[in-house]
Design a protein around this nucleic acid. Structure first.
Length: 588
RNA sequence: CGGGGUGUAGCUCAGUCUGGUAGAGCACUGCCUUCGGGAGGCAGGGGUCGUAGGUUCAAAUCCUGCCACCCCGACCA
């Protein structure tokens, strides 16, 4: 057994002094950007030495990076505790038989990392913990008097992503806070859900990030009501829409589009076949015929729930929303594009020439395609299209549905204002699960009447490690990261200029550093024997919010230099006042 | 999963086409100079060229298999 760790140096209160001298801290920064990194947060985290890759989607958190991760984690933990949730820690490895109870052993697919133990029993590394927590609660909780209960953990998850990328943004192994609440009645679930919504809002406010809560699809986890929390950043993988006339905000995949109240013009042209050799895309078509995209109709063939294929019709400039299509009763779930062979059987041509005229498959048109008159579409013959096509005259009126992706400028679904679009990084997601898991796993409690009731459940996730990357995506400049104070690895850097040559500089820097520590400020002393340019560049790269430079030049006048990470100039501050200056900046 | 690309020093890369004893910059070690925005000089250390096989007098270089990593795609017909 290893010996107990030696106690650090002690001050008069017998508290360990948190000594953070860069001369003894394994900071390894680079000027060059690693070739593998695509996005700025990944590049900067590697350049700053916050993380190191072990394998695809697996990262070591280096001491510097871990400091940030822990600060995010601390905020999450404090606010979860404040909300009344209770922390526990479940195993990362889970028995397969639990996952068979909910059917997810088969449904989850290759995302689930599976393996067997020496007895050939099946296990997986947990990508999420609904099964484990439900199993726990069905054993532990007997009575409605023990409810509601909200249990959470902060734990490493593993999801075997098809394509891990962007560093810790989409890693396979990642740190997640997941909470699960249990209730006898739906009303109690709704109350806790609201508490979690408020708690999440407080958590993201405290991190200092610009975020937005949006209505969301509940996806594979299941359930009904759901919100996502997004950190706004240009590089975000999700599009979110929000109204300028109300508080409506939603993930674009969920946002309905309203039928347009515009009348369909009368047909003015005769349907004509035109030769369009080599045209297979909407862009080709627009170029070949010189018609606007908005006068074209595109036809997507997908597998149907009853018919072999179903045709989805969209205005040329619109995008199909997969979730909406998948939820249409005539469309097979999951949404699957028809194979080239199936297209040929149904339309008699290859993909790229399909059109709705004379097509003998069920047709569903997006609302926005219906007001078109004299439109252009494929002729189901290679190298030909129709122009001057009109609904009702040249083909039957198709069924109408909401199929397209909402766009900037669309009217808000709540009827108030117009939609704008922003990019977001999903960092939190809350769900009302209902009784899906408790029914599959038969988790019940006795209610006030002594009757067994299936538990109502909610679940609430936060991507702790992803928040670190998201914060960088949102806050950086050409010189590096710019941490919000709440999650910075250090709050203040005291940089000694030539401090190994000048005793005066060394003594003053040390004194300021110790005073900051005494005031409870998370300071770091850059006492490395490096040139000033190197030190400044490093402190900017790793994004320390406040910097104090101590050098002989300033000390001649009894001054040191202060500079905020977003400032463009230094500010001279008297040595005696610099700690107070920092405390003011920190709002203390 | 499909397609493409790359594996050479800790990092970024050249060298591969046209086979002939392994290179640069950064980083690292020592000495000297410099010393407030990623210094300069000199001297060094460090590479089974991803891996296994094949061709050849000779392979980082040509051929084959495997592995790893990266990118693109997996609605927009």
């Amino acid at each position: 057994m290893p010996p107990a760790p030696a106690a650090g140096p002690l001050n008069s209160n017998k508290e360990p002094i948190r000594q953070m001298r860069l001369s003894r801290f394994p900071l390894s920064t680079t000027k060059e950007t690693p070739a593998d990194a695509e996005i700025v947060s990944h590049q900067l985290m590697l350049r700053a030495g916050m993380i190191r890759k072990l394998a695809a989607g697996l990262y070591t958190w280096m001491p510097l990076g871990l400091r940030v991760l822990r600060r995010v984690e601390d905020i999450v933990r404090e606010e979860m505790n404040r909300s009344g949730a209770v922390e526990l820690l479940m195993p990362a490895v889970q028995p397969g038989e639990l996952w068979r109870e909910t059917g997810r052993w088969d449904k989850f697919g290759p995302l689930l990392l599976r393996f067997s133990d020496r007895h050939d029993r099946e296990f997986c590394y947990g990508p999420t913990h609904e099964e484990v927590i439900t199993d726990l609660v069905r054993r532990e909780i007997r009575s409605y008097k023990q409810l509601p209960l909200n249990l959470y953990q902060i734990q490493t998850k593993f999801r075997d992503e098809t394509r891990p990328r962007f560093g810790v943004m989409r890693a396979r192994e990642f740190l997640m806070k997941d909470a699960y609440s249990f209730h006898v009645h739906e009303g109690s679930l709704a109350e806790t859900y609201q508490v979690m919504y408020d708690t999440y809002s407080r958590i993201f406010e405290r991190t200092g990030l610009n975020f937005r809560a949006v209505q969301a699809d509940s996806g594979a986890i299941g359930g009904s009501i759901s919100h996502e929390f997004h950190v706004l950043a240009e590089s975000g993988e999700d599009a979110i829409v929000f109204s300028d006339g109300s508080d409506y905000a939603a993930n674009v995949e969920l946002a309905p589009t309203l039928p347009q109240d515009q009348e369909r013009p009368a047909a003015a042209a005769a349907m004509t076949t035109v030769d369009t050799p080599g045209v297979h895309t909407m862009d080709d078509l627009v170029a070949a015929l010189d018609v606007p995209l908005t006068r074209c109709v595109k036809t997507l063939l997908v597998q149907g729930s009853e018919a072999p294929v179903v045709g989805l019709l969209l205005r040329g400039d619109h995008s199909l929303n997969e979730l909406k299509a998948e939820k249409h009763p005539a469309v097979a779930e999951p949404l699957t594009m028809a194979s080239p062979e199936a297209i040929r059987r149904a339309a008699g041509c290859g993909p790229g020439s399909v059109g709705p005229v004379g097509l003998d498959v069920p047709l569903i048109a997006d609302h926005a395609a219906l007001p078109l008159a004299d439109f252009v579409c494929g002729a189901n013959t290679e190298g030909q299209h129709f122009t001057g096509v009109n609904w009702g005259r040249d083909l039957p009126e198709p069924a109408a549905a909401d199929l397209r992706e909402a766009e900037a400028g669309d009217p808000s679904p709540d009827g108030r204002g117009r939609l704008g679009v922003a990019r977001g990084i999903e960092v939190g997601h809350i769900f009302q699960l209902g009784t899906r898991y408790s029914e599959d796993m038969d988790a019940t409690v006795l209610d006030e009447n002594g009757a067994a009731q299936h538990l109502h459940m909610g679940c609430y996730g936060i991507g702790v490690s992803r928040i670190v990357a998201a914060a960088i995506e949102q806050n950086h400049d050409a010189n590096g990261m710019i941490w919000p104070e709440a999650i910075a690895p250090f709050t203040v850097a005291v940089v000694g200029i030539n401090m190994n040559k000048s005793e005066r500089v060394a003594a003053t820097a040390e004194q300021i550093y110790q005073e900051l520590l005494a005031q409870g400020v998370d300071a770091v002393l850059d006492d490395r024997d490096a040139r000033p340019g190197v030190k400044f560049a490093d402190m900017e790269l790793i994004g320390i919010p406040h910097r104090i430079a101590v050098g002989d030049r300033g000390l001649e006048q009894g001054m040191v230099e202060y500079r905020g990470r977003r400032d463009t100039d230094n500010q001279d501050v008297a040595v005696d006042h610099v700690v107070a200056h920092i405390l003011t900046k920190l709002g203390q």
